[in-house]
C-alpha cells in the first residue's frame, strides 16, 4: 500500500459538509468515476457488455441508472460516466475496461471532478439561482450537463425536488462550493 495521503477537492483531509438553512452541501470524494465511449460501430457490443458488467442497460440521453455498486449517466452520444465506490473501485478504469474489452474507450475520471451532494426541501430554489436547467421539473434519474458560474457541470437528480448531485471540475471546487453556499444563504 502506498504512503501518499489524499486530500479532498476542497483541500481538506476529510470531506466537508455544511448545513445552510434547510440545505446540506456535502463534498463526496468517495466515488470513483470513469468515462466510457463507444468505439465506432460497437454500440451493440457495448450495450451487451455493459448490461452484464453493471447489471443495467446504459441510460438514454439525459438519464442516469444505478444498481448495487454501479451507476452510470449519459454524457454525450455513445458516451457515459460510470461511477462506483472509491474504496472498492479506486482503480476503476481497468475494471471497466476488462468488462468492455475493445468495444469502448475507458478513461479514468475520478479526480477530474468534484462531487457535491445537495439535499433539502428548498434545494430547487437554490439550483434555480445557479443553472439554466429546469431543476424544478427534473425527476429522479435525470442527469444533464450545464453551466454553473461559468463552469461546465453535471447536475444529477437523485430524488425529485429534494436531492441532487452537482459535479464540477475539481480545480474549481472551491469556487463551486462558494457559489452553492451563497445561493443557499440567499434562500435560507
Amino acid at each position: 500500500m502506498h504512503n501518499l495521503a489524499a486530500i479532498t477537492p476542497l483541500g481538506g483531509a476529510n470531506a466537508r459538509e455544511d448545513r445552510i438553512g434547510g440545505i446540506t452541501i456535502a463534498e463526496k470524494p468517495d466515488r470513483a468515476m470513469a468515462s466510457l465511449a463507444t468505439r465506432m460501430g460497437r454500440d451493440g457490443d457495448v450495450a451487451k457488455a455493459a448490461k452484464k458488467l453493471f447489471g443495467f442497460a446504459l441510460p438514454e440521453p439525459g438519464r442516469m441508472e444505478s444498481k448495487g455498486d454501479w451507476a452510470a449517466f449519459w454524457t454525450g452520444p455513445g458516451q457515459w460516466m460510470v461511477t462506483a465506490p472509491f474504496v472498492s473501485h479506486e482503480d476503476i478504469a481497468p475494471i471497466v475496461k476488462a468488462g468492455l474489452g475493445d468495444a469502448a474507450s475507458i478513461t479514468e475520471q475520478t479526480d477530474g471532478w468534484a462531487q457535491f451532494d445537495v439535499d433539502g426541501s428548498d434545494v430547487v430554489d437554490m439550483l434555480e439561482r445557479l443553472c439554466p436547467v429546469p431543476s424544478r421539473r427534473m425527476k429522479a434519474g435525470d442527469a444533464t450537463r450545464t453551466s454553473i458560474e461559468h463552469l461546465g457541470c453535471f447536475v444529477l437528480c437523485r430524488v425529485t425536488g429534494e436531492s441532487f448531485t452537482v459535479i464540477c471540475p475539481r480545480s474549481s471546487a472551491a469556487s463551486m462550493h462558494h457559489a452553492l453556499s451563497v445561493a443557499a444563504r440567499s434562500i435560507a
Partner: peptide, 15 residues
C-alpha cells in the same frame, strides 16, 4: 465522422 477515435479531457484528473 467515421474515424474510430474517442477523446476526453483528463486535465484535472492527474496532478
Amino acid at each position: 465522422p467515421d474515424l474510430d477515435v474517442q477523446i476526453i479531457s483528463t486535465t484535472e484528473a492527474w496532478a
